[in-house]
Amino acid sequence: MHIKTPNKPVSRRVLLFTLGGAELVALVSQFSNALFGYFKPRIQPGSFGGKVVAGKPLEFKKGTVSHVQEGHFYVSRLADGGYLALWQRCTHLGCTVPWRKDLNQFVCPCHSSIFNPQGEVVGGPAPRAMDMFPIELTAGQLVVDTGNPIARERFDPAQVFHT
C-alpha cells in the first residue's frame, strides 16, 4: 500500500481562517459562560440560601421540632439532646412539608409522603430522607448553612449535631 503524505505548507488563507474561527469559538463560549453567570440564582446573605441564625441552643426543647421560617428549615432536637436542621422541602416533588405535632410526623399535603422527626421516610412516594443542612455554633447561636443541602438515603446518628 502506498500512502501519500503531502508535506504542503499551510497556506496563509487556511491559517488565518483557522485562527479567526478559533477566536470566534472563544468569543461565543466566553459570552455564553457570562450569560450563564448572569442567570445564576443570587443569594441574599442572612436569608435562605445563605447562613441563617436559628437561635440559642437551649431555645429548643428536647424531643421537639421547631420551624425556622426565614431559613426554610426545621430544627429537630432529638431525645438525646442532639440537633438536626431539616430542609422543609419534600424530597418527592418539592412541596413544603408541614410538621404535624399531633401525629409527631411531617406529612406532605401534595402526595402524602410521611417523615419522622429524624427526617426518615415513614410512608408515601418520597425517594429518600429529608435533606439536611450543616449546623455550627457561632457566638452561642446555632447557625445553619442553607446553601449546602445534604442529600441522604436514611438517618445516621453521625448526622446529629451536638453542642
Binding site: F39, P41, G49, R89
Partner: peptide
C-alpha cells in the same frame, strides 16, 4: 430547575 426558578424554591425570582 435552578436557572428557571432563580433559586431553590418558587419565589419573586
Amino acid at each position: 430547575r435552578e436557572m428557571l426558578l432563580g433559586g431553590q424554591e418558587v419565589g419573586q425570582d
